[in-house]
Nucleic acid binder design. Structure first.
Lengths: 354, 354
DNA sequence: AGCCGCGCTGTTTGCGCAATCAAGCCTCGG
DNA sequence: CCGAGGCTTGATTGCGCAAACAGCGCGGCT
């Protein structure tokens, strides 16, 4: 086939062999920048050219080269996301929300797992910043000083997720873990539990704040006892829940309730009670955290704190997109709250009004 | 401070304001390509220059620009990963394995969620291919024809994960879901169950092959009955497990065992039995699939098929890295197998030797 | 009528890096 | 003693795109 009148590209040395903007422009008989505009901002190109360009793109199967775009515009269409864990299904739901929040917009997610390590967080952040991301999403509010400084100087929108607190880097979305911890403890006090244990694994900063909420309420009720708190820095798991429960029973055989730092632990306690033929809630009341789907189906169903994990991911992306567009979100600190779901595992005496 | 003898960069119009290779080269008193080599392939630069360059990198805080690198070398240090779901904790473990398999090598993961949709898979693949990834990892072996063709022409290593089968696109790592389905069914037949139900949600191709394994064994044993199979295309969940179990009880009140397509369903059945005061395994034997950590701790503990999810992710990356390095992995089709974990929920009469 | 300003399009340039080619230096063998 | 060949280093070029700036034509205004 004879070459048409458009420029014949010289593939002598390099090149991916794929059509470029210039190829499309040649075929459509326009300048390459017009093609660029037609793809990024169609409003600024006349309908006639737009159509010719679209036809040429189709014919050649042109796909933009994101590296070249990023290089030329000093801006990559990438949002960096740092989460501390993937073992935990909490964060996989956040990720799901993030991906869904993206819709079909051309942003890409660059995702990193810090394994709850400040060093790893800083290392990953350095890698991410090298890409000149359009925005960054980080978990929690307890960044190490150098990490925080890097985020402040990142030159792009930053969303801290999972938790809200004073002194945001830029934007924030989450809820108060302290208040959540208080709410659960208050509920168990209200239903008449006297010796309320606290089981916690991993004990990251958010876990510690939930513990602090528990401690506050327990002190107010005059029922705090350090022996009631059983924690480990090891990762959370169902079997760890059973293990911690047994440890707690040794230390404080008189406990009549356990607040678990998350639902995995609570499930472990449920199974442990089942094995030990302890009646729930008559002998042991159980409360969890996060309200995984299974809590409602469990037998007995387990009281838990519903946390807006998916919603946090979705809205974090929404906030980032608004900020990337150059506007300022209506609210830059968003408290999505939480909801105490009271179920059979804590239904003892007087159930409070709420 | 007076400017040193190195080139003073002209920042008149554009530029990110960040140090570049040329800046490092100027400070170290070498050519920019030498810096490039020192960073990518230190062996090829003399130790003395290497050290001067390292010092200059540190002083300037130089971070390479991956977009520029990708543009110049026509190859992005990105591995595209397509999984069908994030709701399912199976895939979050695969992802965890993938991230861990990466170590601190400079590859990035570009990750996409197909939501079990062939259209979405094709769309995401198109986006990924636009980035000229170094490798692609896709889930399953049932790609749509156009998707398969795109993968074959991708010009980079491709790893199909989760499942093995004939006719690989390039490399494969996983196990046989058909055999896994057979193994569970055979076990329940062996322990003397007569009316063995099958519960399945989502029913993606892998689920269907597990069902096929079940059906094969049941027919061989002369116990197959279509009424024993209860499935839905809705997503899997613990409550769905309870729901499917109730449906099965209505259709076939005489069932004495259920094989669940995954552990979420099995847990739902466990809770449903608990609520209905059905004895496990005396009245109902339960088997799950995947062997989530909680299966062992559950009360009673639940028989399940241990699948190498984390290992699949880790090894998929390892295979991809070998292929990216230009070598050929020792084996391009890797069967990691599975392991039937027999536990209390199916311990009835005669336990087979294995 | 002349001027301004706006809407649309094109030309040139450079983003930061690596491939290519070239050159200097050394070693070693004939 | 000289040339071949390996090792190290450097200058140039171009990857594909978007920013900056320029030009053109048209309509409305003074």
């Amino acid at each position: 086939m004879a070459s048409n009148d458009s420029e014949v590209r010289n593939r002598s040395r390099r090149g991916s062999g794929r059509p470029t903007l210039a190829d499309v422009a040649g075929l459509a008989g326009v300048g390459s920048i017009t093609v660029s505009r037609a793809l990024r901002d169609p409003e600024r190109v006349s309908p006639e050219l737009r159509q010719r360009i679209a036809a040429a793109v189709d014919e050649l199967g042109y796909v933009p080269n994101p590296s070249a775009r990023a290089l030329a515009s000093a801006r990559a269409d990438v949002i960096g996301v740092l989460v501390p864990s993937l073992t935990n299904n909490v964060f996989s739901e956040v990720l799901r929300g993030i991906h869904d929040g993206l819709g079909d917009c051309p942003l890409q997610i660059q995702f990193g797992n810090t394994h709850y390590s400040e060093q790893e967080e800083e290392r990953l952040l350095r890698v991410f910043l090298g890409q000149r991301p359009s925005a960054l999403i980080v978990s929690g509010i307890d960044q190490a000083p150098t990490t925080r400084q890097m985020l402040e100087e990142a030159g792009c929108p930053v969303v801290q997720i999972m938790e809200i607190g004073p002194d945001p880097i830029d934007m924030m979305i989450g809820f108060s873990h302290l208040e959540a911890g208080k709410a659960v403890a208050r509920h168990l006090v209200d239903v008449g539990c006297k010796r309320i244990g606290f089981l916690g694994a991993r004990m990251d900063p958010r876990s510690r704040r939930r513990l602090a909420g528990y401690e506050t309420v327990m002190r107010e009720a005059g029922r705090f006892d350090a022996a009631l708190v059983t924690t480990t820095i090891l990762p959370s798991s169902v079997s760890m829940g059973a293990g911690l429960f047994h440890k707690a029973l040794e230390k404080t055989p008189d406990i009549d309730a356990v607040i678990c730092n998350n639902d995995d632990l609570a499930l472990g306690v449920l199974f442990a009670c089942h094995r030990a033929s302890l009646k729930i809630p008559a002998q042991i009341a159980i409360a969890g955290f996060n309200d995984l789907e299974m809590m409602e189906v469990a037998s007995p169903s387990i009281t838990s704190v519903r946390t807006p994990r998916y919603e946090i991911g979705r809205r974090a992306i929404a906030m980032a997109r608004v900020a990337i567009a150059g506007e300022r979100p209506h609210r830059t600190i968003v408290d999505l709250g939480f909801e105490l779901k009271i179920r059979e595992s804590t239904m003892r005496a007087a159930i409070p009004a709420i």
